[in-house]
Design a protein around this nucleic acid. Sequence first.
DNA 1: TTGATATATGGAATTAGTTCCACATTTTTC
DNA 2: GAAAAATGTGGAACTAATTCCATATATCAA
Lengths: 347, 347
Amino acid sequence: MEQQKVTIKDVADLAGVSKSTVSRYLNNGYISAEKQAKVRKAIEQTGFQSNFFAKRLKTRESKLIGIVLPRMDSVTVGKLLSGITRVLEPEGYQSILLVSQLSGKKELESMQKLQQQGVDAILVDSVGLTAEHVRRAQEWGLPILYTGQKNAAVHCLKIDDAAAGHRMGVYLRQMGHKHAVFAGVTESDEAVGIERKEGFIAGFCEGRTDAKVDFVETGFDFLSAYNQAAEIHKLDPSVVVGATDNISLGILRYFHERGVRVPEDISVVGFGGYDVGAVVYPALTTVAFDYELMGMKAASYLLNILRGGEAGMTNLDMPLLFVERESVQNLVKKTLPINSTSLPAMM
Amino acid sequence: MEQQKVTIKDVADLAGVSKSTVSRYLNNGYISAEKQAKVRKAIEQTGFQSNFFAKRLKTRESKLIGIVLPRMDSVTVGKLLSGITRVLEPEGYQSILLVSQLSGKKELESMQKLQQQGVDAILVDSVGLTAEHVRRAQEWGLPILYTGQKNAAVHCLKIDDAAAGHRMGVYLRQMGHKHAVFAGVTESDEAVGIERKEGFIAGFCEGRTDAKVDFVETGFDFLSAYNQAAEIHKLDPSVVVGATDNISLGILRYFHERGVRVPEDISVVGFGGYDVGAVVYPALTTVAFDYELMGMKAASYLLNILRGGEAGMTNLDMPLLFVERESVQNLVKKTLPINSTSLPAMM
DNA sequence: TTGATATATGGAATTAGTTCCACATTTTTC
DNA sequence: GAAAAATGTGGAACTAATTCCATATATCAA
């Protein structure tokens, strides 16, 4: 087997010291100023690079963080990863990536692989927490953090969907809207299908009895929402609330095609804060989830555990960003006399 | 130092064989059926897992591929990564990710880190190839493949921008367009700024003298294109060609706001094939770059070199996907008598 | 019945580091 | 000035695997 060009032994010989001394130089163990200079010179001359595997074999620290992602080709995941990397890199950690392709089984397999690989910790953007997930988190010694899903028995980090929905509900109530259609997804998705919707209804109806929320179920994708748009339109609300920006985009397109003006004739809002929302006409008002920040928080959390600070469980407190753009009409303003008399020419 | 729970020695003792025999069992070296059974049983009982670092130290093969990306929060990069993973995972390789944040210096540093880490190969989605990049590819023993940039001295893989431009030019010519405005970026970007534009002009003007292409420079982003849209409109072309989909989206939004109908009054096309293009109104006709396929090709290429097949240099042959949607008017059809007489009611 | 070849197997060396321990200096304290 | 403490240093053991080499059988041909 071909051997390494320059080893610690070569450096030691050249510097006239022992292997131990070179190792100490490398790891801030103590060494006299004199030998320090010699070793430094020898390392420069030889171009010595420490062997990763030999070092890790002994120290049992890989400085590698395993990350399991449900898929790669989504902006959401990209931002999450971006946030994780931003925190991990300066600390000398690097990430190994595995993709679960939205399969719980592959997710577990990937975690297993990473564990064998000797990563220091694992971060999983999970598609669903099972008993097996919980068991592994306990059985293996290493820190595991789940994002996107919630379970009291493990470390996890999740967006507060109820708060997001509530926020939007309050906003639309304040804008004077009374009849909303919530274009949502199946209730089998607890976060988006239930929490987000319930949160919205609570915020929208809070403190009044004349508010009305209808519900129409769609899929997650743009096309499925587009296909439900006619039904939504028939209910004749003043605002359509898409459970995700993609849903809202599908509805927006339908309205465009039919000549329904947004927000003059009807308002549309979404959740997610995708960049696309700024590009469509009119630009979509939305509650943005800061996935990059979530990635940063997740990474910090993991780092904290790694350093022995057995941080208190689960932090659900992910801040939300309300992005007010052009797709909502202010019904309150419109009925004020000062507006209705001074601005008729603008129509 | 805390030691590993179960080592190959423990398995050997339990099975009543030597370490060597267990190692042979693990690595398909020969072993009698009898001992094979014993070892299998011992491994099951102990739950033995081979130590990654000890193994790699000896074999000098990490089964790790280093990937350097300019940024993470883009769909393009996500697709590329998705393609890479799809090829690498089934072969037992895993990826270590580093982000260069669009800096050539960080890119080089990241490569260095990966090399120290003992990866088997490096894939760089480069922001610009320097002499240093070429030098490293030669100096370090390991295979390095660059994507996104071109240089004859190293392995690289790039989209054929000239062909993409040409393809679009031919299409618009066939649709009967004679006056185009190319909304492009600075020529300091060789691929997009020059190759793509020149390719378009060639395809558009091929074999005729009555074609005209004006050029307006914009930035890469949606907003900068939006700001140039008035100037473009003044030139009164029959079609606007955005150098990227983002540019086209900015222009599309401007037209929407001014009541200019697309494609009835003016056609708009782009390059890239971003999903967004299908969602806007009208859906954008574009030349899509299959970044996922590019990732797959890149990974295969690397795998091939790793296996000793010193594959011939650089394969520029990335297939393009023409995506015809709604944003281009067929001027040829329009002038046919059968249309102008039978369909006036549709206006 | 030999000698030659094939098939298994164990022992020891090897991989490139870190770290413990013993020991030699030097410095500080009483 | 002797004892105690601090500071360096090298040797050897250790980390957990792979692999070379020697050796022991078993199989086969002459």
